[in-house]
């Protein structure tokens, strides 16, 4: 993401990439585990949940950043929650209008985006202290990072647990689906596997720096 002629200083590629890679909400910060584990039974579910969260995150960070000089410190959390809840309600209606099947698959987890700690965390730690554009870029990065995380989990679980990806059968009839992967315990197994991979990558990198 390049923004060459921006008057706002301090927006770098890193503002965006922070959430995608270095501070990835799922793989590094391990935040928002409730939707992460519960809805990622398929790639579509994971991706949709990720996009819904991305929308709420970006819109609420924009609004929080726009009114950051207006809001007295004492009522800031209450204000942020009202803003976040508003955008979650919006997403709720939009998903119902787009696809009822998806709405039923995601269930209560759409409403539960309100209490996703990534969103309140970003609003409090970043958006309330930064100009709108920077806040949006940062929120976009975090949201994309979260969506990638959910998609990675959802795709892995769908491939292993159902032998499909986006509903398309990948293997022949001889493939016996590993059903436990689409059940709740499978969520933990797959998340553990991904965390292991990221920890391995990190320790490799640190080892290289020292050497």
């Amino acid at each position: 993401m390049s923004l060459p002629n921006q008057a706002d200083e301090g927006i770098t590629f890193d503002t965006f990439m922070e959430g995608v890679w270095r501070q990835n909400p799922v793989f590094v910060m391990v935040l928002g585990m409730c939707p992460t584990l519960a809805v990622t039974v398929s790639a579509v579910n994971g991706l949709s949940m990720g996009v819904a969260t991305l929308f709420v995150l970006v819109s609420s960070c924009l609004l929080v950043s726009l009114i950051r000089h207006l809001v007295p410190k004492e009522v800031r959390i209450a204000t942020y929650i009202v803003i976040i809840a508003t955008f979650v309600t919006l997403v709720d209606y939009l998903i119902q209008a787009a696809s009822l099947a998806l709405y039923e698959a995601l269930g209560a987890f759409i409403q539960l985006i309100v209490v996703n700690c990534i969103i309140l965390g970003r609003a409090e730690a970043h958006a309330s202290k930064n100009p709108p554009l920077k806040a949006v870029v940062n929120a976009l990065g975090m949201g994309v990072g979260f969506a990638i995380g959910l998609f990675a989990l959802g795709a892995t679980r769908e491939i292993l647990g159902a032998g499909k990806l986006f509903g398309i059968t990948l293997f022949g009839d001889n493939f016996q689906p590993w059903v436990v992967m689409v059940l709740p315990p499978g969520g933990f197994f797959v998340l553990g596997g991904w965390l292991l991979l990221f920890a391995l990558l990190r320790s490799r990198k640190e080892g290289k720096v020292q050497a």
Binding site: L63, I67, L70, A78, T86, L90, Y93, L94, Q96, A97
Partner: peptide, 27 residues
């Protein structure tokens, strides 16, 4: 401040409800 924020949010929610109601009923 709270009243202002709540009014903005109220307008947004009503707008979204009105905008999507037909599509949801059709769905």
């Amino acid at each position: 401040t709270m009243a202002l924020v709540a009014s903005i949010c109220g307008v947004l929610i009503v707008g979204a409800f009105e905008g999507t109601q037909d599509a949801i009923a059709e769905n």
